[in-house]
Design a protein around this nucleic acid. Structure first.
Lengths: 135, 135
DNA sequence: TATTGTTATACTCTATAACTATA
DNA sequence: TATAGTTATAGAGTATAACAATA
């Protein structure tokens, strides 16, 4: 098949997807990485900041600013771990969970709009292939 | 279908693709953007630096460092446009074209290796969908 | 001594605004 | 005056190392 290189196609598509996500997140005053952090917390397995850094593929030092801002806004809380006082347990607040639910719905809508350009069978193959290719 | 968000899937896949490209480009001493510039020149339509900036979606000021380095290595030449002396025509040299051909072949190999994980029909649907989705 | 969270520093990219030479 | 190419400066994002508290 003759087509542009994967790097070119994927980077352009990703730019489009991120721009669509931003139209959802900006009205909520949420940055991209802040959303990623909320989403990781919503998925459960990220008790400490170290775990959270690993789960989001981010550096622990870059996480701190995001958590500071999210905590200021009352979307997450950091509480010292009684078992090991070096750790700080990060958790969503009620507001944080509602924010996450709202953003996820908006992003899902954006994805539907984007993928609507594909015939159904091609769309399914695309999604399956993506999941299979991702490391 | 229940799957991770497109942004997550695409950014991970793109990271993998770029890492594979780098294994091809690094031995040639070529940076990612330098390769992008060579590829745009190889595709023909990019006479002036302005055109080249537009074709690669890059800023004209960021292009300059890449062109400087490529010219030092003898992979491209910049010649003043006799018709409008403000313009500088950028063109591949013989070495530049050979470098491009070599890198393209290596990158194509890497893509084949990556896509080999997919059954043939799914792979074809994936590639068609990608091309259709890209803006 | 090793680890968690934090702060500080430096380095890379990028964006913006000036500057030149041509038109 | 406007444009192509260049240079310089400042800003964001990232990586690295050092630090305090705890184990």
């Amino acid at each position: 098949m003759d087509r542009p290189e994967l790097g070119v196609l994927l980077s352009r598509l990703l730019r489009d997807v991120l721009a669509r996500e931003e139209t959802v997140l900006r009205p909520e005053g949420l940055g991209m990485w802040e959303y990623v952090v909320l989403a990781a917390l919503g998925d459960g397995d990220a008790p400490t900041q170290s775990d959270l850094a690993a789960a989001t593929g981010r550096d622990k030092t870059r996480l701190i600013g995001n958590l500071d801002r999210l905590e200021e806004r009352g979307l997450v809380v950091r509480t010292p771990d009684p078992a090991d006082r070096r750790n700080r347990i990060v958790a969503l607040t009620g507001d944080g969970r509602r924010m996450l639910t709202r953003c996820r719905a908006g992003i899902r809508e954006q994805e539907e709009a984007l993928l609507a350009a594909l015939p159904q069978s091609q769309r399914e193959a695309f999604e399956r292939a993506l999941v299979r290719l991702v490391p």
